[in-house]
Amino acid sequence: MPSAEVNREAGHPSPRKGRDMETIEPIIREHPFFQGIKSDYIKLILGCASNVRFNQGEFLLREGEEAHQFFVLRHGKVAVQLYVPGRGPIVIQTLDEGEVLGWSWLISPYQARFDVQAIELTRAIAFDGKCLRAKCEEDHDFGYELMKRFSTIMVKRLEAARVQLLDVYGKDTGKTNPDQR
């Protein structure tokens, strides 16, 4: 299990919850993902946030499990990977400081599609997806705001995945003269 600095589950306040909020709030306010978001929404988000830490080798998400969180990585690096029988884990993408990880919490059936493993000591802010989903249902404007931000990330990652699929560095580049540098 990951070494959570505070309890990561929503609805289970940790003794350090107050101090956590103090450290998390400025990070959220300054993070590009939340840039321009209303102060009221920041408060809603803060209520679902906690600091977490994962040692090297620990998993943030496991394929097939319920996706109940997303993360803003503060330090370290994680690998998004898929286990392929006979080949082992294949890393599809790595994410590190400043990046946002996980959108399965927002989209039905709320199930992680990939394993995500810390490849070095990783500190992050974890956001309780169930808690946020409930707030999105209560306030659709808030939900739309979050959806807009996540869809931007999704599109960027989809574009990157499509370029990866092209195998641009492969030998079959369609050149008329393959000997060209």
């Binding site: 890393v91 400043g98 070095e120 370029v163």
Partner: peptide, 23 residues
């Protein structure tokens, strides 16, 4: 440095080269 694909155990970045611009 980044690579488009890697097996587990690679400690470096995985992703297209344009993702490095954010660093």
């Amino acid at each position: 440095v980044t690579v488009d694909q890697a097996a587990g155990g690679w400690q470096g970045n995985v992703g297209v080269v344009t993702t490095l611009l954010s660093k």
